[in-house]
């Protein structure tokens, strides 16, 4: 279980880094509007997935953890936005912070459903739920990284 979670965290860090390195070589080809779309969607999805994986993995208290995940999301947004113009930098910063806060909230509700007033589940279902949500978000970020990677050909 712990090994699986750390593997997922590593994959979630690896996917934005690989996409960033491939985008960095071709940044002279981008127009203004294309850069805005890229920084919007990439920072949103990757920081959502990273925030969820960080909440399950790190054994620290909630206030420290939300600070760490917000900082990670804003770093993702800044590094995608800084490729193009200042406008896309602001959009990337905003969307990265929003996405990581949303991911932290989603993970907190998955661990303890009585936060939202839902009936709380048994502890055997908890591991299955954690595995399923992490797998789903990682597959989603992989799919969107493929979409973004092949987007500038069209």
């Amino acid at each position: 279980m712990i090994l699986y979670l750390y593997t997922m965290l590593g994959i979630n860090i690896l996917i934005p880094a690989v996409l960033f390195l491939t985008m960095k070589k071709k940044r002279k080809l981008f127009t203004d509007r294309y850069g805005m779309t890229i920084s919007f969607s990439a920072s949103l999805i990757f920081s959502l997935s990273l925030g969820t994986a960080l909440f399950f993995t790190l054994p620290v208290s909630f206030s420290v953890l939300i600070f760490i995940s917000a900082a990670a999301g804003s770093i993702i947004g800044l590094s995608y936005g800084i490729l193009i113009t200042f406008q896309s930098l602001i959009i990337g910063l905003f969307n990265g912070t929003i996405g990581s806060l949303m991911g932290t909230m989603l993970a907190a509700v998955i661990i303890d459903p009585s936060l939202c007033g839902l009936p709380s589940q048994f502890s055997t279902l908890l591991d299955r739920n954690i595995i399923l949500i992490t797998l789903f978000l990682t597959l989603l970020s992989l799919l969107s990284s493929l979409l973004l990677r092949f987007s500038y050909r069209v």
């Binding site: 969607s41 999805i45 959502l48 979409l147 973004l148 987007s151």
Partner: peptide
């Protein structure tokens, strides 16, 4: 791309 990411959120 923008419709995809906003619907996801």
């Amino acid at each position: 791309l923008s419709g995809y990411s906003n619907g996801l959120m």
